[in-house]
């Protein structure tokens, strides 16, 4: 085909422009969301350098006034002010949600990798690994948290070294619960990826004198962990949402805070809509971030949609 001569239709232009416009909107929303969170957190650590601790960064009256001035938005001005009033509590709850999710995910990962390897390459250890994953995946997460918190009363035996890191020691119990449970799910995703690595890779590793474990470490895992990223991201996303179960063992994370406010104010719809938006923002951030990671570590020459 020689040179594009046909004028592009409006439809084509919209289709082309749309992704970038959507992207800009998404990035702007993300920047606002994380900007607000970070400033709120820093403000709290600095003891209220930017705004008094517990007060919104922007005065609710200011927001209400601004909304009232815009004809179409005047009707929701009071709601907007209410949401702004919630922001300090939400930011505080989100901090715990993010920390619990992040720490549990990372700790769970370091348990999940050996579990997955044992499952694929072990003999006796394969059975242990299978038993662990089936037990943890086959029973309700909430029940597991209850066993740790009420049953074993672990909040009372948090080691002195880490006690006091969080406002309440029960946070450690939640982290332990999500770590143990998440490890089982992560192990399943990683196992699938380990199995998808060709046997010839290990054979080649052993042929140059690497031991079996070294071959797994230097050859199989670097590939498998890359291949696991898309499915592993599911667990990341689930964990963000499931971390709300920590509220049931009195961890004052995002869900717990929102639930408290809703009960106090009776404004369930507004509160839980905002809560939903918060989780959505966290989840979108996580999945977009993992997409970037996936692109960054992609092996040159291998198709993006590598088949299993």
């Amino acid at each position: 085909m020689a040179g594009a001569t046909r004028p592009r239709t409006v439809g084509e232009r919209v289709a082309d422009a749309d992704p970038s416009a959507g992207r800009i909107l998404l990035v702007a929303a993300g920047a606002l969301f994380w900007g607000w969170l970070l400033v709120s957190w820093v403000n709290r650590w600095l003891g209220g350098a930017i705004a008094p601790v517990g007060e919104p960064l922007v005065a609710p009256e200011t927001v209400e006034g601004a909304f009232a001035a815009v004809p179409g938005l005047a009707a929701v001005a009071a709601d907007a002010a209410f949401v702004v009033e919630l922001t300090p509590v939400l930011a505080q709850g989100t901090w715990l949600t993010v920390v619990i999710t992040g720490v549990s995910l990372v700790c769970g990962f370091f348990i999940a990798v050996p579990l997955a390897v044992a499952r694929v390459y072990g003999r006796f250890s394969a059975w242990l690994s299978l038993g662990y994953t089936e037990l943890l995946r086959g029973t309700p997460l909430l029940a597991q948290l209850f066993v740790l918190y009420y049953g074993l009363n672990l909040a009372a035996s948090v080691p002195a070294a880490v006690s006091g890191v969080f406002p309440r020691d029960v946070v450690w119990v939640a982290i332990l619960g999500f770590t143990l449970n998440g490890a089982a799910y992560q192990a399943e995703y990683i196992r699938g990826a380990v199995e998808s690595v060709d046997d010839g890779q290990i054979t080649a590793g052993r042929a140059i004198g690497l031991s079996k474990l070294e071959s797994i470490y230097y050859v199989v895992l670097p590939q498998a962990l890359r291949y696991a990223i898309p499915s592993w991201t599911n667990e990341f996303v689930y964990l963000i949402k499931y971390s709300s179960l920590a509220g049931f063992i009195t961890v004052p994370e995002l869900y717990y805070r929102a639930d408290q406010v809703a009960t106090e104010t009776f404004r369930y719809t507004a509160v839980f809509l905002v809560l939903g938006a918060m989780y959505l923002a966290l989840v979108l951030t996580a999945s977009k971030f993992m997409e970037r990671v996936d692109d960054r570590v992609a092996i040159p020459g291998l198709g993006v949609d590598r088949e299993r």
Partner: peptide, 17 residues
């Protein structure tokens, strides 16, 4: 032993990453 004996495979088996 394997250090002293090199092996070349039909399907190459290069480390993909």
């Amino acid at each position: 032993l394997r250090r002293d004996v090199g092996m070349v495979f039909q399907s190459f088996n290069l480390f993909a990453h």
